[in-house]
Simulated assay, not measured.
Amino acid sequence: MTAAPDRGVIVGASEAGLAAAETLRRSGHTGTLTLIDDEPGPLTTDPAVEGDPLRRLSP
């Protein structure tokens, strides 16, 4: 049996990408998650979105 990877890469940091990352965290993934997006600059939180999606991604 192969061990689960300790890191993950998600292409797209839109709401779907954040939802994928959140699902991985809820499923117990505690390794590194990298979100790749074509927007310039760092990933930011939209103040219009309820809660803080970046904080929810922390293990």
Rank of each mutant, 00 (worst) to 15 (best):
M1R: 14
M1A: 15
T2S: 12
A3Y: 04
A4Y: 01
P5Y: 04
G8K: 00
V9H: 02
V9P: 03
V11T: 09
V11F: 07
G12D: 04
E15S: 12
A16M: 06
G17Y: 05
L18F: 09
L18T: 04
L18D: 00
L18I: 03
A19T: 11
A19N: 03
A20N: 05
A20K: 03
T23D: 10
L24C: 09
L24Q: 06
L24S: 02
R26H: 02
S27L: 13
G28N: 00
G28S: 00
H29W: 07
T30K: 06
T30I: 00
G31V: 12
G31Q: 09
T32P: 09
T32M: 08
T32V: 11
L33V: 15
L33F: 05
L33D: 02
T34C: 04
L35Q: 03
I36M: 05
D37S: 13
D37H: 15
D38Y: 10
E39C: 11
P40K: 03
G41I: 10
L43Q: 12
T44W: 01
T44P: 01
P47S: 07
V49L: 11
P53R: 10
P53N: 10
P53E: 13
P53G: 12
L54V: 15
R56P: 09
R56Y: 03
L57R: 11
L57N: 10
S58M: 04
P59Y: 10
P59V: 12
P59R: 15
